[in-house]
């Protein structure tokens, strides 16, 4: 992604994103995570490459290196280090990465109506709640059923993750004006479904551990 601006220090145009290529002063950090790392806006990311960039940029931007520099650069190094950590945490995780891309593209995440959960899942959720109710009333007989349900939910999560990977690739290979939006829409509903099931697993774990406590 192009990020052309004038250097705040020497005024040169086309200064470069991290340090000015002419006077080598630290530039204001780019808030966009992809642009900050100098990566193309793809949903599939080479995490080894990302990690390499993270380590080398951490060294370059570390506030300790700027103690003798101007106040402006000291501030930029703090800001840049903070963005670097946030950006790395988000981009190295496929789910957070996809959520970030969606959010930046203007999609609302986390808002949905009752119809978004497929009926076959509702059945499972209802059964799960019944079983958890019985567990709370002290009926340990439902434990095998809960284990089985938990296993099925984890399988669903794995299936969603595999499907997401394919969707990521489809998104990345389409041209910007050629149906990326359609794939993003699919990814959004897959993420909703994923979060919903994740919450179910967490709920089972919470109930099981509070019972053991």
């Amino acid at each position: 992604m192009d990020h052309e601006h004038n250097c705040w220090q020497c005024g040169s145009a086309d200064a470069g994103s991290l340090f000015c290529r002419y006077c080598n002063s630290l530039q204001a950090p780019i808030p966009d995570y992809y642009a900050f790392f100098g990566l193309p806006r793809t949903l599939s990311v080479d995490t080894d490459e990302l990690q390499n960039r993270f380590y080398s940029m951490s060294r370059l931007l570390h506030p300790d290196r700027f103690t003798r520099r101007s106040e402006q650069e000291r501030r930029y190094s703090l800001e840049a280090s903070s963005i670097l950590n946030d950006a790395y945490r988000v981009l190295r995780d496929p789910i957070r990465r996809a959520e970030y891309v969606l959010k930046e593209a203007g999609y609302e995440i986390g808002e949905q109506r009752s119809k978004d959960v497929p009926p076959e899942l509702l059945e499972e959720v209802f059964e799960l709640n019944m079983a958890l109710d019985e567990l709370r009333m002290g009926d340990d007989g439902v434990l095998p059923q809960l284990d089985e349900m938990r296993r099925r939910f984890l399988e669903m999560l794995a299936a969603i993750d595999a499907a997401l990977e394919t969707k990521f690739q489809r998104h990345d290979t389409r041209p910007d004006d050629g149906g990326k939006a359609e794939v993003l829409e699919e990814i959004k509903s897959a993420l909703h479904r994923r979060r919903y099931i994740r919450n179910l697993v967490n709920e089972v774990d919470r109930q099981l551990s509070s019972r053991n406590a």
Partner: peptide
Amino acid sequence: GLVGAPECGDVMK
């Protein structure tokens, strides 16, 4: 009729 509101986790039969 089985319906749900995913965000708050409500399920209604």
